[in-house]
Design a protein around this nucleic acid. Structure first.
Lengths: 125, 125
DNA sequence: TGACATCGTTTACAAGTGTAGTTAATTACA
DNA sequence: TGTAATTAACTACACTTGTAAACGATGTCA
């Protein structure tokens, strides 16, 4: 079953990796410096832990590592969503949807896109 | 700013309190025994921590406490949702909505309700 | 008025987390 | 080839979390 637990800070790291892999650690550090105040050593720790958790892997080139994800973003997103809806909305996805639909200001275009998804969903049932 | 951090296990506890408050701890324990394997002492710890975090308060009646929430569920839900969408969907609520709309099987009725919400949202902009 | 049951409080403890300095190895430049 | 810079690994440390037993106070029933 291998429960992979990715912490909040680790999510920030692996998000940039999913967006730009393969990446060296200094590229990752550089990217994260835009959104955090983490010391480089902090990022290194995170990379180390994520590697240990088998979320990341790397190819060694000289004395530096080139990281990439070992797990699919979509799988992690799905898992995280599932536990979130369970925790906050008692597992009721429709409540969650209602909440986010109400609380967010969407553009006309986004609204249309969502309508289209609803149409598809309806067609499939 | 008072960052309130409610852990996963604590969410399970406060959820039953929001649903049934005011409640004594044995009522809370009883309710949770339906969904968890926690020892009563575990629940007590949680109640204690949530009280310390000022998420709960209580009235003393004899030697037992009657607990109720000090924070509104809607506020906690909102905060939790905000940090979740930031963590998993880079803050893009429309991505989150698309994900959940696609990944969940909704009844025709739920779909209609969501459409109505979309209509309202559109009308307001 | 004891003895027992029931509360909440205190203590426990390992694992995970956020945050980062220190160190040892390797590379690169002079 | 030696020294400076860079890199990943190791160590650190306080705080949170999940999980619960032990303890002391209080209430209850005989």
């Amino acid at each position: 079953m291998t429960e992979i637990a990715i912490s909040d800070a680790e999510w920030q790291v692996i998000n940039v990796i999913w967006d730009g892999q393969p990446m060296t650690s200094q590229e990752i550090v550089a990217e994260l410096s835009a959104t955090t105040n983490w010391a480089p050593a902090t990022v290194k720790t995170m990379l180390h832990r994520l590697t240990k958790k088998e979320v990341l892997t790397f190819d060694q080139q000289g004395n530096r590592y080139v990281y990439r994800a070992r797990v699919r973003r979509s799988d992690c997103v799905r898992r995280e969503c599932r536990s979130f809806v369970r925790k906050v909305f008692s597992g009721e996805t429709s409540s969650l949807l209602a909440h986010f639909l109400k609380s967010s200001k969407l553009t006309a275009e986004e609204i249309q896109d969502l309508r289209n998804i609803l149409d598809e969903q309806e067609a499939q049932s």
